[in-house]
């Protein structure tokens, strides 16, 4: 099983490198999709169907939106000239990361080994306390509902932000100019410039 994981991880790394390096936007988006779907397969193999479903569906959605956004654009070629400093800096930090993770990983339990100090309690009492047989949902919506409400808030705020920035009504008309005054606006200015808000 771990061989499969290794192969899929290497596949993901190759996909992400292609996504960064290729000059065609569409190929880049598809490579990102490769990474996501491989991650979905990994989740399935590790026995996490909940996350696998979410991962695959979200990946499809992202692919559709990104392809819709990029398919009409021309090839925006990446600049050939690159600074050396960012590359050197990221290499150094990657080396530091590897060094520290070498020491940190030593203390971690073996991969996949059921340590489960906290989770065992959920597994024992989860069904009795919540009545939900899907223990992931029980944790998500009962034991750890605070996390879920945080997640919902993040989603909500980001949607509000996207709507405010991207919606059509907020745009100026053709003849209108920018508001030049700084500070509190007159009522007429507000009416003139922010009609449709």
């Amino acid at each position: 099983m771990e061989t499969y994981l290794l192969v899929l991880t290497v596949f993901m790394i190759i996909g992400s490198v292609i996504a960064i390096e290729t000059k065609n936007l569409l190929s880049s988006v598809i490579s990102v999709g490769v990474v996501g779907f491989s991650l979905g397969i990994i989740f399935l193999m590790l026995g996490a169907p909940d996350i696998a479903i979410t991962q695959v569906v979200v990946e499809i959605l992202i692919l559709v939106i990104l392809i819709r956004a990029t398919i009409s654009t021309d090839n925006t070629a990446i600049e050939k000239h690159r600074d050396n400093l960012p590359i050197v800096a990221s290499l150094i930090f990657f080396g530091l990361f590897l060094l520290f993770s070498y020491f940190a990983v030593h203390d971690l339990p073996v991969f996949g080994e059921p340590v489960m100090k906290v989770a065992s309690r959920y597994l024992e009492t989860g069904v009795r306390e919540t009545g939900a047989t899907n223990i992931v949902t029980a944790v998500l919506l009962d034991f750890r509902a605070y996390d879920t409400i945080g997640e919902a808030t993040v989603l909500f705020v980001s949607i509000v932000g996207a709507f405010v920035i991207l919606r059509r009504q907020g745009r100026k008309g053709r003849g209108e100019k920018d508001v030049e005054k700084v500070g509190i606006l007159e009522d007429e200015d507000i009416k003139k410039n922010f009609e449709g808000f």
Binding site: V57, V136, L140
Partner: peptide, 20 residues
């Protein structure tokens, strides 16, 4: 969502995919 794998988020994204 409380019986089988899945839940509000995954199902919501599937419904959104339907609309899309």
């Amino acid at each position: 969502g409380h019986l089988t794998p899945g839940g509000g988020f995954a199902g919501g994204v599937i419904l959104a995919c339907g609309y899309i």
